[in-house]
Simulated assay, not measured.
Amino acid sequence: MVITGYGLIAPGIRNKQQYKRALERGLCAQEVMPGMGPNGIDIICGRIHDEPISDRRYRHYPRVAHLAIAASEEAAQMAGIHGADKFQTTVIMGTSVGGLIEMEAYAHLTASKQYRRFPIAMAGSGNPHSLSVAVAQHMGLKGQAFTLSTGCTAGVDAMLMAKMMLESGQADICVAGGSDAPITLGSIYSFMRLGAMSRSSQVERAGMPFSSESDGFVMSEASGIVVMELESHALRRGAAIYGILAGIHSNNDGLSIFESDATGRNMTEAMQRAVGSVSPTYVNSQALGMKINDRVEAITHRHLFGSSIPITSIKGNIGHSFASIGNLQVISSLLSMEYSFIPATIKTDAKGFDDLPIVMKTRYEAVEHVAVSTHGYGGNNTCLLLSKYREAG
């Protein structure tokens, strides 16, 4: 199961090369959002300022679809699938909050029953499936289209579903990924009430991975998409191969929608079943500055890898972009294997995690395998193993 292309858009990042630069240099694109927090306090978020696309055909599409369309363009170009069989190419996208921005923006019209002022765009914004349909339309694909909404694991869950579709012969190529644009007052207020989102107004103090001093994550918007196919199909069409999806496994904590399994047993099982007997070069962790999540990451790492395998998190660079963050971790891992470096965990002091082999400065070395962990709202754990591709002979 190979990856033949990918594309992304994230705060301060529009393409592969910009992402590589941000990861290698430890750049942070998060910023102060004046007055967006409770009682008008300033908070830190990761925003995309430029319009993702300018095509007027999509002016009534939700922002989450705009982000995905922008990412899909780079992925399709890299994979060379513009001429692929449009009926045998499947789109599977994940999202956590979908078109929440638009729904929240027009809520007052609903409350006041202003029917004639209500925009037709809401019919698309209120339907999460607009995301996959928009990507399929933009790429000219007529095959199956699916939208998953499994919280913050949705983007990598899309990759799990793509793997099953390809292995069962229901598709030749799958375009899989995630997209979210969660920065709204409703999202900010609710996650702050849960104690999950950082209240800090200092970029360097908000969303600190692997730190007991962190008070929560930094909310971000982004989209990340990969193109997947069987190796045999990729070789027949002469595609470049950027990595192998060597293993992937998902489970659920089975607790309240507001809880996670603090013992780490379920995350550990998901990671163990994803990596099997392989020792990864490093772990690309979902650690995002939430105390319980980061503790679970530490438990999993101590149990499976100990002090011999490095661990890092890219959340200090781009924040937490909900359903797309796992795909951004995957893409960062593919870049890591291609260019032989392990990105540093920025914005951390490692307090409370001193025993973990956290990568504090960019390390240049050969990268053969990367384990990726993600955890989502409602207790989903999805972990995967990426391996460097080497041609036979």
Rank of each mutant, 00 (worst) to 15 (best):
E31Y: 13
M33V: 04
M122V: 00
I101D: 00
S279E: 12
Q77S: 09
H320G: 11
E221D: 13
A262H: 14
K20L: 03
S200L: 03
K291W: 09
K86C: 05
Q30G: 12
E51Y: 13
K291D: 14
G216P: 04
F258V: 12
M161Q: 03
S223E: 06
S333L: 06
I41W: 00
S212M: 12
P62T: 00
G393P: 00
E104S: 04
A22N: 03
L335K: 10
S321Y: 07
V227L: 07
G169E: 01
I81L: 01
A246L: 06
G186H: 04
S373F: 08
G326E: 11
Q170L: 09
M103Q: 00
T382N: 06
I346K: 01
A196D: 08
L304C: 11
G178R: 00
S223P: 12
M228G: 03
T184P: 05
Y61W: 13
S190W: 07
K113G: 09
S340P: 10
M33D: 14
I173N: 15
A105N: 03
Q114I: 00
A262R: 15
V135L: 11
R295P: 15
Q329C: 12
E231N: 06
V283R: 15
Y61D: 13
R236L: 15
D85M: 10
S387M: 03
S373N: 15
R236H: 15
E221F: 07
L8Q: 08
T374L: 09
I309V: 15
H303R: 15
G207E: 08
S211H: 11
G178M: 00
S168H: 03
A22K: 02
H60K: 13
S256L: 11
H249C: 05
T90R: 15
S308F: 09
R237D: 00
R25V: 06
S279H: 07
A154V: 01
R302Q: 13
M36G: 14
S256N: 13
G140P: 12
S256Y: 10
V275N: 10
G94T: 08
V370Y: 08
G26A: 03
L194H: 09
V133D: 06
D354N: 05
M360H: 10
D294P: 15
I53Q: 06
P128W: 02
C383K: 05
V372A: 12
E221C: 06
A158V: 01
A287K: 02
I120W: 02
